[in-house]
Simulated scan of single mutants.
Amino acid sequence: MRSSFALFATAGIIALTLSGCASAPAPEAVSGDSSDAVSVTGDFGEKPKVEFPAPLAPEETQCTEIIAGDGELIEEGQFVLLGASLFNGTTGEEVQVVGYDEDPAPLAIGDDTLIAFTKGLSCAREGSRVVVVAPSQEAIRPSDDPTGAEGGDSLVAVFDVIRAFMPRADGAVRLSRDGFPAVVLAPDGRPGITVPKGADPFETTEVEVLKEGSGEVVESGDTVVVHYTGVNWADGEVFDSSWEKGVPISLVVADDEGSQVIPGFSTAVIGQKVGSQVGVVIPPSEAYGEQGNGAVPGNSTLFFVIDILGVV
């Protein structure tokens, strides 16, 4: 194998992302002799005892569900919290364990990940414990050159899907006021935004609930999972979007210096219910001010559409 199986960041943040079907997901892997040969015991959410006859050498990724989960299969664009135990499937060596002891590891499901994880987690749901066994050529990221992995070791992984966040806001649709930017949604939930021509008519941060959810209320200091798109009011051009990156993100919203986002973004999210989608007009004073930031010129009014997918 050209790189180790130390695949997860040690500080509780998973640096990998996965890819899957955009809609109506179906499992990309099924059980087989290799995944069925892995014995897993122990309580869900706690480090399991894992035994298997090494070497395991499947021709393609296999997945066996050990503990049945609930709800829909995990799909692209979701954010999950996991417990994960990783092993070298050729030698039997344990190489990494993360996400247990009430500290599940977060993972945003997107495009750049191990093929094995993409296929294996596509057969999982919230509450699932699954065994994934993969050959070396599928235990690589799509962006990597697979040549270096040929002839390497297989991978065995046991995942506990402790929590799966919704992939897009699912609240009841609400109408916005006149003069507010128009928002239309693609089938996968991605927003398209049309900003009215002319100067921003608002002088303060203005929030509209586009979909009203029914979940937990976001409080100041919460870490939230969101999908968002931000445009510059002046030209309507997108300057940042988690949808374009393919994954939702987690961040802290707060009404003080503890926030990880601009003040207007926090204002839009705090006090809203999970499952909601909000639109927010943010003046320069609550955004990037006179100095601007990257693709945002100074003194720019911004408009965001934010899907609030959960509180971590």
Rank of each mutant, 00 (worst) to 15 (best):
S285M: 11
S300M: 06
P55C: 10
V207P: 00
I13Q: 14
V50C: 10
G83P: 06
V80T: 12
A287M: 07
V50T: 07
V252F: 08
E102M: 13
V132R: 09
E208N: 04
G221V: 04
P181Q: 08
P283C: 09
L185I: 02
V183H: 05
E290Q: 14
T91Q: 05
G264W: 02
G42Y: 07
G292Q: 12
V253Q: 05
E60F: 10
F304E: 01
A268W: 04
A116W: 05
K49Q: 14
V225N: 01
M1R: 14
D101G: 11
S154L: 11
S154M: 09
F79G: 09
T64S: 15
S285N: 13
G192I: 08
P181T: 06
L114Q: 13
Q277P: 00
L18E: 15
V40M: 07
I115K: 11
G279L: 00
G264L: 03
V50I: 10
P25K: 02
V130P: 08
D43Y: 04
D200Q: 06
P55T: 10
A268G: 03
Q291G: 11
I193C: 04
K119W: 09
D144V: 12
E51R: 10
E150H: 14
E212W: 00
T90H: 07
A169M: 01
I74N: 12
N299I: 01
V311D: 08
V226F: 01
Q137K: 12
S285H: 14
P48K: 06
D103Y: 12
M1L: 13
V195D: 01
P201E: 09
D103E: 15
G221A: 02
G271E: 06
L81C: 05
E138D: 13
V30W: 09
E76S: 15
A182N: 12
T229M: 03
V261W: 04
W233I: 01
I308V: 08
G215W: 01
L121K: 11
T194E: 06
I109N: 13
P263E: 09
G45F: 01
R141T: 08
I262E: 10
T91M: 06
I66R: 15
E244W: 02
A108T: 12
S4F: 05
G192R: 12
A26L: 13
F265W: 06
L16G: 14
L114M: 14
P283I: 06
I14Y: 05
S34F: 04
D170E: 14
V195H: 01
A108G: 15
E216F: 00
G171Y: 01
E212L: 06
G275S: 08
G45N: 09
T204A: 14
R129E: 11
G89C: 06
P25A: 02
G179A: 01
A26W: 07
P104S: 13
S266C: 04
F239A: 02
L107R: 10
G279A: 03
V269W: 05
Q272G: 04
E28N: 10
A24P: 00
E257P: 00
S250P: 03
D222I: 00
E93P: 05
V226E: 03
I162K: 15
I306H: 03
T205Y: 07
R168D: 03
V247I: 15
D112F: 13
S3Q: 14
I140F: 10
E126Y: 08
K119T: 07
V269N: 07
T90S: 13
V281L: 06
F79D: 09
P135H: 13
T91S: 15
E76F: 13
T113G: 15
L210D: 03
S122T: 11
A182I: 11
T118V: 02
G230F: 00
